[in-house]
Write a protein that binds this DNA or RNA. Structure first.
Lengths: 203, 203
DNA sequence: CCCTTTGTTGAATGATCGTTCAGTAGCATG
DNA sequence: CATGCTACTGAACGATCATTCAACAAAGGG
């Protein structure tokens, strides 16, 4: 048997950015399937169809990949703040976005749960969280301010933002671990009802 | 050197119930310190001061211990429902209990986060969760009903219970991963404000 | 004081973990 | 076609994982 000189390549080379994105996607799939315990080099690399050495090559370590994954999740959640071409979204648009099918589904919330469980005890991930969380809270507070001004209401936007974020995260959590007791519609209503006393009837 | 015939015992024997409780406490300490990744036989047995074989002996496996730990956490959260000698607590008493120092602290909420992250992907733990969650929701719904009747309000207690539980869990979550932005007082206020439109001013 | 019960030990096992690194090979460039 | 860069492979490493099990020993009853 003579080896063909132009046989199919053993693998394809990608740019660092492309391969990094592929590894992040593979990591997300592993988190969704098996939580943080399923987030192993073996699982991730099999999911991505690459060999075990690649995680270290593109990210410094498995923890580096996890940090990148955390950033990716936050960026996707923050997308709604940059989508608006005008002065920025109101709080109703944010609530609608956070409970849209792209965000409010079992896979995505399972990933969030796995990450949150790690944030509390992994210092590096804790710093990553703090960095993004401040931006997230500022975005929600800004949306609350815009809606309040439009309606002539006076509110403590920062405090209210923490409450809204807590409720959103709690609804994600319940939808993930007890999905039969929750719907996107009732979740949105819960948010609006909580905000009514401060901003008037929503949406 | 002659061995003393009545030297100090190498270890002490405990009843199965006592030793189980000790292993549960050790497991809780490990979860609080290192999340689900810190929940290893090595860590737990070192924390409890016993050898590695004991977890298998008293619980069928490490997963069995984790299920027992989940039950323990829920029982402690449900304690307030059984403490009241009368017809049961109102919703205000539950809110006060869930944000009391014994419950609303970083250690306890870190343990909850670690467990929630596992519930989503561990089927055995998922069943354990479902069993307790229904009792928990029923308890909260009962408290809401009692308060509503006393005030002559009409509410959908089950739906409202899910909202309240979501908000409580969300506030626990935020307090755990961003403790500098939250206090027990503001957390309680968030719950009361959400309930005001349904039940009138609380507490 | 012996004997039975059973809670407990700790070495051993095989699997899997994250990371390393010397070598391979895809692919753009000259 | 030859060269250089670097993405990539995959075997190997030592550490750690959960679990097993034969031997041990504490404590209570006879």
């Amino acid at each position: 048997m003579i080896a063909k000189p132009d046989a199919a390549p053993k693998y394809r080379r990608y740019s660092s950015a492309e391969r990094s994105a592929m590894l992040i996607d593979a990591g997300l799939a592993c988190l969704a399937r098996g939580g943080i315990l399923g987030f192993t080099t073996e699982n991730i690399c099999r999911e991505a169809g690459v060999s075990r050495g690649l995680i270290t090559h593109h990210f410094k370590s498995k923890d580096g990949l996890l940090a990148a994954i955390y950033s990716t999740m936050y960026e996707r959640s923050l997308a709604v703040f940059n989508a608006d071409p005008g002065s920025g979204p109101g709080i109703a648009e944010i609530v609608e976005a956070e409970f849209s099918p792209a965000v409010f589904n079992r896979e995505t919330t399972t990933i969030w749960l796995a990450l949150w469980g790690e944030v509390a005890t992994n210092p590096a991930l804790g710093r990553e969280h703090h960095r993004h969380y401040l931006a997230y809270r500022a975005g929600v507070a800004g949306a609350l301010k815009r809606t309040a001004e439009k309606r002539g209401c006076e509110i403590d936007a920062d405090t209210l933002a923490v409450m809204v974020i807590s409720l959103i995260d709690g609804l994600w959590l319940e939808n993930c671990i007890a999905p039969d007791l929750m719907s996107a519609e009732s979740a949105k209503m819960a948010c609006y009802r909580m905000l009514d006393p401060f901003l008037g009837p929503l949406p």
